[in-house]
Computed example of a mutant assay.
Amino acid sequence: MRSTLDGGDLTHGDGLELAGSTLWAVQNATDTITRWALSDDYTTATRTRHVTDESLGLPTTLVRRDNCTLVVSSQFDKGGPMGPGTPTTPFKVVAVDGI
């Protein structure tokens, strides 16, 4: 079976949440959250929304509650696999409305 993405890609995709025929994804290296509408047979996904903001801090996972997306900021660029330094603690969970 072959899948098709329309309107974007999932490069650097990390955390995913699926609810019915809607998929949300965080893309860590680009500080992006995307929302996708899936076809009835789940073989095609059309990007319906995306938000890119460096305040997401290399997001690694997400959870949806009502109309809010909660995103974990990994800080992988601060002492992790993507750069030197020391992470700021406590780690942040960023709330994004309307995605």
Score class of each variant (00 low, 15 high):
2 R>W: 04
21 S>F: 02
91 F>R: 10
73 S>K: 01
96 V>M: 06
66 D>F: 00
81 P>G: 03
78 K>D: 00
97 D>R: 11
18 L>H: 04
51 V>I: 15
84 P>A: 15
82 M>V: 00
77 D>K: 06
36 W>Q: 09
99 I>H: 12
77 D>G: 15
54 E>G: 13
9 D>V: 02
5 L>Y: 14
96 V>W: 10
3 S>L: 05
81 P>M: 15
90 P>F: 05
18 L>S: 04
40 D>I: 02
31 D>C: 04
82 M>Y: 01
94 V>E: 04
69 T>P: 05
2 R>K: 11
65 R>W: 13
5 L>M: 14
44 T>G: 09
19 A>I: 06
55 S>T: 14
23 L>K: 07
10 L>P: 03
12 H>R: 01
67 N>G: 14
96 V>L: 09
48 T>E: 13
46 T>I: 12
38 L>S: 11
89 T>M: 07
33 I>A: 07
27 Q>F: 00
82 M>K: 02
48 T>N: 01
6 D>N: 12
14 D>L: 02
99 I>W: 15
50 H>A: 10
39 S>Y: 12
1 M>N: 12
40 D>F: 02
83 G>W: 08
54 E>K: 14
85 G>P: 13
13 G>T: 12
32 T>L: 05
73 S>E: 11
14 D>C: 09
49 R>I: 03
67 N>I: 11
6 D>E: 13
85 G>Q: 12
24 W>K: 05
65 R>D: 12
3 S>C: 09
94 V>Q: 03
48 T>C: 05
77 D>L: 05
55 S>P: 00
23 L>N: 10
89 T>S: 06
97 D>T: 08
28 N>F: 08
84 P>F: 08
65 R>N: 10
14 D>M: 03
12 H>W: 07
29 A>M: 02
95 A>I: 14
19 A>L: 04
98 G>T: 11
94 V>L: 10
58 L>M: 10
75 Q>A: 06
10 L>C: 13
90 P>S: 10
52 T>V: 01
93 V>Y: 06
90 P>D: 10
7 G>R: 11
62 L>H: 10
8 G>L: 07
88 T>F: 06
70 L>M: 10
6 D>H: 13
19 A>F: 01
95 A>M: 15
47 R>D: 00
13 G>F: 01
82 M>W: 09
37 A>R: 15
77 D>E: 15
39 S>T: 14
84 P>Q: 13
89 T>Q: 08
28 N>W: 04
89 T>K: 07
71 V>P: 05
54 E>Q: 14
25 A>V: 13
41 D>M: 03
79 G>H: 09
41 D>C: 03
56 L>Y: 05
60 T>W: 07
12 H>K: 00
29 A>F: 02
89 T>C: 02
80 G>V: 03
23 L>I: 10
46 T>E: 14
66 D>M: 00
71 V>K: 11
51 V>Y: 13
11 T>M: 06
18 L>V: 07
53 D>I: 08
76 F>H: 01
41 D>K: 05
37 A>G: 13
14 D>I: 00
48 T>D: 07
25 A>K: 00
24 W>T: 03
69 T>L: 14
28 N>H: 11
99 I>L: 15
34 T>W: 02
37 A>T: 15
52 T>P: 03
8 G>T: 03
71 V>F: 14
43 T>P: 09
32 T>M: 02
64 R>G: 14
59 P>T: 04
54 E>F: 09
58 L>Q: 05
10 L>T: 13
56 L>R: 10
51 V>P: 03
26 V>S: 00
29 A>K: 13
77 D>Y: 01
